[in-house]
Design a protein around this nucleic acid. Structure first.
Lengths: 148, 148
DNA sequence: CTTATGTCAGTGAAACTGATATTG
DNA sequence: CCAATATCAGTTACACTGACATAA
């Protein structure tokens, strides 16, 4: 019987991952609060800024949550007039969301402060390392994808 | 006035980070559910396995949550008899938690499945890269730490 | 006096599962 | 019939802030 592998916190990439995400989330949280945005709300705006007119279900996948969770976030942003959705689906059932001018303006500010944080986060890494880091992380995420 | 930097999702390390953590969390969640453990509960057990007798506040810091949040997790594990705490503090106010035999046994199983997942996650990376990845992530987390 | 800890109270944004209706 | 979408309902495990008492 082979020895059961155990997690070693000192060398665990998973633990370092959680640590970094916690620090990043905390920093983003503090920076976005003055703008009246939560991190999930910002993520939603950012996704919409890059993909105008995508559906709630697509937003949910982009933010790695369920449609139902995204619905809550979306509703809050709708109530604040940061985005709009047509009352009826132009095709199929999907309701394409779009940023309002107010939403686009707020996103510009939010995206700015988040970019600053990311820059600060990557500052200690040498040239080219951030790109490699991103590639490695994506490879890790792909490797974890359950194959159907 | 310099142009405001914006987040670019295609090259954003932050986005890749969230993607990877979402995949990791999902995989851990699925693997731990049969054991009756949530990810925060597992994290608590793992921390206790490495640091027997640490206080609730120390656990909270290790899991990157508040004392109050950790309290909830801790209570559930206490109710299930997976760990014990003395009724009175042996010194100061801190109540040192320890795994019960049942807790240690469950942790061993949980740690095994989590180690497997981490191994699968890192499989696509070349030799030595996981260690570098861990160092880089830790450096990023440190860079985000607010200086007091 | 200051700091760290535990705990009680209250709140809340997100996350989930489950079910239903509609459209292509 | 089937897959994807939206939505309603209900639940809940976390996570937060705030406040207080206590011990070093």
């Amino acid at each position: 019987m082979p020895p059961s592998p155990r997690v070693d916190l000192d060398t665990s990439v998973g633990y370092a991952l959680r640590q970094t995400v916690a620090a990043l989330r905390s920093a983003m949280d503090a920076a976005l609060r003055p703008l009246g945005l939560s991190v999930p709300q910002y993520a939603c705006l950012e996704l919409l800024g890059h993909n105008p007119g995508i559906s709630s279900a697509e937003l949910a996948r982009g933010a790695f949550v369920t449609r139902q969770s995204m619905q809550t976030v979306l509703q809050a942003l709708l109530d604040r007039g940061l985005l709009t959705r047509p009352p009826t689906a132009p095709r199929g059932r999907a309701l394409p969301s779009r940023l309002t001018p107010a939403g686009a303006q707020l996103l510009a500010r939010a995206s700015g402060v988040v970019a600053e944080i990311e820059h600060r986060m990557l500052a200690p890494l040498p040239d080219g390392r951030p790109a490699q880091l991103r590639r490695d992380l994506t490879a890790c995420a792909t490797a974890l994808q359950p194959e159907p």
